[in-house]
Amino acid sequence: MSFINYASREINCKIVYYGPGLCGKTTNLQFVYQKTAPDAKGKMISLATETERTLFFDFLPLALGEIRGFKTRFHLYTVPGQVFYDASRKLILKGVDGVVFVADSQDERLDANIESMENLKVNLEEQGYDLEKIPFVIQYNKRDLPNVTSLEELRELLNPNNVPEYEACAMTGEGVFETLKAVAKLILVDLKKGGA
């Protein structure tokens, strides 16, 4: 749910990065953080374990610029990917405006991707959202690794509705901004349609 503030002329939107454990959600945010001008970003917060696994969420506030005199800000969140953190994932989806699903392209993670996608649908429904109706993009991450599932197969299993999809290598940053731009754009188009 976006927050439109007429007093400070700001609009805030929430984007959540979802996906199985170790698929690269945090890496996506880290790359965005590194490559964004200091005046356009806030501090990145990572609530992680000692072994750098996300425990609750990562958070990165971004300012994109102005539209019609309104400052547009996007708050980027990641969920903890590991299966047993489901209660936390549900909390982070509250008030979401757009979702990025980060898939791990490696063959051995195919089942984990499918499970996580199902989990996303269920958790969104619990909050009253329909994945088919909210701004949603898919990123096929780790395309640089040798043992990857073919795009055709990933597409068939994860993207039956043909939402925008991007190949990526979050470590080097390939595809990271394309993904972010795509979801941000969908959110703004949605705002335009939906009105306030």
């Binding site: 439109i4 007429y6 939906g194």
Partner: peptide, 15 residues
């Protein structure tokens, strides 16, 4: 409407 659960709006006066 499912899609955009209407936004939270803040007006000058209430602010």
């Amino acid at each position: 409407m499912f899609a955009s659960q209407s936004s939270f709006v803040m007006y000058d006066e209430e602010f």
